[in-house]
């Protein structure tokens, strides 16, 4: 009598794993996509407040904070656009990781050096404590890096 398991294609388990793996990747992609879309929209809607909080930062004294604010928003909107297309998604993940790395470095600098803590993140993210903020950024940096290497590997396989 043939075993029940013999009816199952030999690559079932690896396929199932792959599907699960694929769902997980899609879920993480969506997280990164919506994080930047949400962050960009909240910063744009509260652009005045965003620039005000940059003005208050001693790290940006003598700088054109409107330009810095616009650049950050542009970068945040660029990420979902890059992620939207298969051919540019790799650069989207890279930009996401680097932007979060920069934000985290800035938060750590501000936390350690500045006598004030003006937060410019906007929306729900602004409600996080500074420690939570750093962990939140580290988590998304990890996700972005994972997706970046995953994408990079796929490109290599295709080639």
């Amino acid at each position: 009598m043939a075993s029940f398991y013999s009816c199952i294609p030999t690559n079932f388990w690896s396929m199932t794993f792959r599907y699960k793996h694929s769902y997980a990747i899609t879920f993480l992609q969506c997280l990164v996509f919506f994080l930047y879309l949400y962050s960009g929209i909240t910063k744009t809607m509260g652009f005045g407040l965003f620039v005000n909080s940059l003005d208050k930062s001693l790290f940006f004294s003598d700088f054109n904070t409107k330009f810095i604010g616009t650049s950050v928003i542009a970068a945040e909107f660029a990420i979902p656009v890059l992620l939207f297309f298969e051919s540019t998604a790799l650069y989207g993940y890279l930009l996401s990781f680097l932007l979060l790395l920069l934000f985290t470095a800035y938060i750590v600098l501000m936390f350690q050096l500045s006598p004030f803590l003006p937060c410019s993140c906007g929306g729900l993210i602004e409600a996080l404590s500074w420690r939570q903020h750093i962990f939140f950024n580290l988590a998304f940096m990890g996700i972005s890096l994972l997706l970046f290497f995953n994408k990079n590997k796929k490109k290599m396989v295709v080639q």
Partner: peptide
């Protein structure tokens, strides 16, 4: 080759940050 490109880009980006 692509892997190399990706890693190089990542390293350049980290250096810029």
């Amino acid at each position: 080759m692509k892997t190399k490109n990706g890693s190089v880009l990542l390293l350049i980006g980290i250096a810029i940050v």
